Amino acid sequence: MNQSNGTPLLLRTRGMAAEIAARLRVMIDEGELPPGARIDEKDMCAAFDVSKTPLREALKVLVSEGRVTHRQYIGYRVAAIDLDDLASTFEMLHGLEAMAGDLLRQRVSAAQVAAIAAKHRRMVECHNSGKRLEYFRLNQQIHQMIVDAAANPVLSTVYATLMAKVHRARGAANADMLRWSESMDEHEAILAALEDPAHADLPEILRTHSENTAREVLAVLDRTRANSASVQDARTPESSGEPEEVAGSDQV
């Protein structure tokens, strides 16, 4: 095949790979594919209606990003989350939330409060109708809007960077969040503090909400890791001389 014939096929493959990578990235970051989950190439090809070539190109990208791992004879899995690093990141976020709340007491405008309140109402609607994923996305946006309203660009940038680090963890825990209603109540308290002209309680309310969120996310992920370890132990064959069945060995 000459180059003129081969190039369009290569471009199509690369374009498809980028689209698949973007879709898988969202599935991983928002918890649809949890940490440790096996990525079955056959199932994914069927789901995306593609061949293995663009899928594997997409998976290579996600491996380079640290979202996916690959082992020969084992296949692809969603990367585990480092809980120690996650806990440290959350500790930083607690302080940034409180700092933003303190700055907001002098700087937030009525227009910014109104915009946050409008986004909050949409989040309440998602909560009431059980739209967990949409709720999660709006929740993330509201937190960034609150920090941005503190009018400190450095704070906003650092906060956004750290939130990106915990986004996948929050998404993974979101599918099993036991305190959804409690979190909703805390957001109601945040909005009430924003709408209070004094904003006196805002720093502490924001910090407490951040701490409660971190506690639940870490607990959910710790349970998930323990359950996964139990399953792996149950599947490990006894030393009877029989060959171990390798997960993912059906991959081509």
Rank of each mutant, 00 (worst) to 15 (best):
2 N>T: 10
2 N>Q: 08
2 N>C: 14
3 Q>P: 12
3 Q>M: 14
4 S>N: 12
8 P>E: 12
9 L>G: 15
10 L>F: 15
11 L>M: 14
16 M>N: 02
16 M>V: 01
17 A>P: 14
17 A>V: 04
17 A>H: 06
20 I>K: 01
20 I>V: 07
21 A>P: 01
22 A>I: 02
27 M>C: 10
29 D>Q: 12
31 G>F: 03
39 I>E: 02
41 E>N: 09
41 E>M: 12
45 C>H: 04
46 A>V: 11
48 F>S: 08
49 D>Y: 00
56 R>T: 05
56 R>V: 07
59 L>P: 01
60 K>S: 13
65 E>R: 01
67 R>A: 07
72 Q>T: 08
72 Q>L: 05
72 Q>M: 05
75 G>F: 03
77 R>D: 15
78 V>L: 09
80 A>N: 15
81 I>K: 05
82 D>Y: 13
82 D>R: 00
82 D>S: 09
82 D>N: 09
85 D>F: 04
88 S>C: 10
88 S>Y: 05
93 L>I: 05
94 H>F: 15
98 A>D: 02
99 M>Y: 03
100 A>V: 06
101 G>P: 14
103 L>S: 13
104 L>P: 07
104 L>A: 15
106 Q>H: 11
106 Q>S: 13
106 Q>E: 15
107 R>K: 04
113 V>T: 06
114 A>N: 12
117 A>E: 05
117 A>G: 08
119 K>H: 08
119 K>T: 11
122 R>K: 09
122 R>C: 09
122 R>S: 11
123 M>R: 01
124 V>W: 02
124 V>D: 09
127 H>Q: 04
127 H>I: 02
128 N>T: 14
129 S>V: 06
131 K>H: 11
133 L>R: 04
134 E>W: 00
135 Y>T: 03
136 F>Q: 03
138 L>Q: 03
140 Q>K: 06
140 Q>Y: 08
141 Q>A: 14
143 H>K: 15
146 I>K: 02
147 V>R: 03
148 D>G: 10
151 A>F: 04
154 V>N: 10
157 T>P: 06
157 T>Q: 10
157 T>F: 07
158 V>R: 01
159 Y>G: 11
161 T>M: 04
162 L>N: 04
165 K>V: 13
169 A>S: 14
172 A>N: 05
175 A>P: 06
175 A>E: 08
176 D>K: 00
179 R>T: 04
181 S>V: 05
182 E>M: 11
184 M>K: 04
184 M>H: 09
185 D>T: 02
187 H>W: 04
188 E>C: 07
190 I>C: 07
191 L>R: 01
193 A>E: 13
194 L>E: 06
195 E>R: 10
195 E>P: 13
198 A>I: 05
199 H>W: 08
200 A>W: 00
200 A>G: 10
201 D>A: 13
202 L>T: 05
203 P>M: 00
203 P>K: 00
205 I>G: 07
206 L>F: 00
206 L>V: 00
209 H>P: 12
212 N>P: 06
213 T>P: 01
216 E>Y: 02
219 A>P: 00
220 V>H: 05
221 L>S: 04
221 L>E: 01
224 T>Y: 13
227 N>C: 07
228 S>H: 13
231 V>Y: 03
232 Q>G: 12
233 D>C: 14
238 E>C: 13
238 E>N: 08
239 S>A: 15
239 S>E: 14
239 S>C: 13
242 E>G: 13
244 E>H: 15
244 E>R: 14
246 V>P: 03
249 S>N: 12
251 Q>A: 15
